[in-house]
Amino acid sequence: MSDAVSISGLSHAYNRSSKPRFIVDNLSLDVSMGDIVAIVGRSGSGKSTLLNIIGGLEPVQSGKVRVLNNTLNHMSDTDRTALRRSDIGFIYQAFNLIPTLNVADNITLPLALAGHTTRSRTEALKPLLNAIGLEDRGDDYPDVLSGGEQQRVAIARALIHKPAIVLADEPTGNLDAQSGRNILSLLDALVKEQRSSLLLVTHSLEVAQVADRILVMSNGKLLTAEESQLNGSLAW
């Protein structure tokens, strides 16, 4: 099975010019196509930074990062953008829906950016709206939706262009336990249906259970659950 993500010797520091603080330190990671990987860790441990680097939102400072056989180190901003547009879907803790676009426009945004016609966008939208249970809310604006509903819209937006990789940063962080569980099962189902890889960042071990593999981010490195001696607590 080919690699969705392959990282070796990755380091990333903030305040590089003055007092560098390494948030990612000589990290390596391989994710196969279709894998669901959860990365857990305390707040500020560098989980989101890692996700942003994989998504091409942060530059690769040192080490090597390959995503879908593309070496990010050598890619221009335009190429990284094109990669995101075609093969990557993002889901954020804060939903990050565009407040002035309605639900339908938010979900079909990646298709619009890729130049799809209105007709093909509408065709792609319908099954997704049904899948997330918001078939009659297409004309509503994000701020009249509940947190769970907003996150469902965000998931639909991340998946509408059938990306090979979905990057989810604390997708249930702003939701209550029940809504969180619903979102996770929806995400799991949709990702599996599309055979996408999912990289899930969370500080909740309960959320991480959805993954095939759980890794722990600590001191800028990724450890397996065993290596990190997880003591069974459900959250960091």
Partner: peptide, 16 residues
């Protein structure tokens, strides 16, 4: 700014 950042993350190029 944040809205535009979402667009960039979703695949909007600098030129776009």
């Amino acid at each position: 700014a944040r809205e535009f950042a979402v667009l960039r993350a979703t695949g909007t190029s600098r030129k776009q």
